[in-house]
């Protein structure tokens, strides 16, 4: 039984990976979006925002050092859009109904999607990180700090992927599926990705401080640039557990309801 779930997952994962490799436009979108934002913020707005940052205690020359971790988190969030669309397209095709009439592990169908999405989000996030290094981001982190940052990003990716899978399953059309994760994609912008929460007007500031992405951004920034982390790491991990468990439960419930589409 267990063995069957594993072999089915691997078989279906091969299929999903083929889709991603043959039709990489969604994954490419998950790279281009954050890269364009990065270019915009560093190239066009960098000077203004950098001096604003200096006023609150930062270094204008190192604005890229401030936003690169935020951009990397944005790349993780952008991956969820690709995931939701892929899952929706796939489950609206009749092939998944065929799987359901076969002796195929149902968990495997979802697990294959999740693994495929996590792998493509890792790839797109790595590309975005590489571009920010090309643009002058010079993290000074130890190997342990690198690993810790990668681990948190992976954990966040896993959590957001389950959430996005659930969104893809409950969306009736691919258009709806690409709209559903918009909130996830834009949340880092209303967080500490581009400016410290403390620089924001009241109301927005509270929101920025308590939303899930800010502690994750602060933790990654702290690990890669040496900024203080404080309780952020624990809060970030807590958010990952909550979002991941919620997404998992939602996805499984949505998948066992056959008439979702």
């Amino acid at each position: 039984m267990r063995n069957r779930t594993v072999t089915d997952t691997l078989t279906l994962l091969r299929r999903n990976l083929r889709h991603t490799v043959r039709y990489p436009s969604m994954t490419a979108g998950a790279i281009f979006g954050p890269v364009i934002v990065l270019l915009l913020f560093v190239g066009v707005l960098g000077k203004t925002l950098g001096s604003g940052l200096a006023a609150s205690g930062g270094h204008p020359a190192h604005y890229i050092a401030y936003i690169a971790p935020g951009i990397i988190i944005t790349a993780v969030a952008a991956g969820s859009m690709a995931t939701a669309v892929a899952v929706c397209v796939d489950t609206t095709e009749g092939i998944v109904d065929r799987f359901r009439t076969m002796p195929v592990s149902r968990v495997a169908i979802l697990a294959a999607h999740v693994i495929n999405s996590v792998l493509s989000t890792i790839a797109s996030t790595a590309c975005v990180a590489a571009v920010s290094v090309l643009l002058g981001f010079r993290p000074h982190a130890t190997v342990a700090q690198w690993l810790a940052a990668a681990g948190l990003l992976l954990f966040l990716t896993l959590a957001l992927t389950w959430l996005a899978v659930a969104m893809g399953l409950v969306s009736a059309t691919p258009e709806a599926a690409s709209n559903a994760p918009m909130l996830i994609v834009f949340l880092p912008f209303v967080g500490s990705a581009f400016a410290p929460a403390s620089s924001m007007p009241a109301g927005v500031r509270q929101f920025a401080e308590y939303q899930p992405f800010t502690p994750a951004i602060e933790t990654v920034r702290g690990l890669l640039t040496g900024a203080p982390i404080g309780h952020n790491a624990v809060i970030a991990l807590g958010w990952c557990v909550v979002l991941g468990a919620g997404g998992y439960a939602w996805a499984v419930a949505a998948f066992s309801r056959p008439a979702a589409h």
Binding site: T11, R14, H19, I95, M102, P103
Partner: peptide
């Protein structure tokens, strides 16, 4: 089924091998 249940992103051979692997 009444409506096509093939994987449109794979070839016919890949579809059949996918079934064979799942069986």
């Amino acid at each position: 089924g009444q409506f096509s249940a093939v994987d449109n992103l794979l070839s016919a051979r890949e579809n059949l091998i996918l079934m064979a692997d799942l069986y």
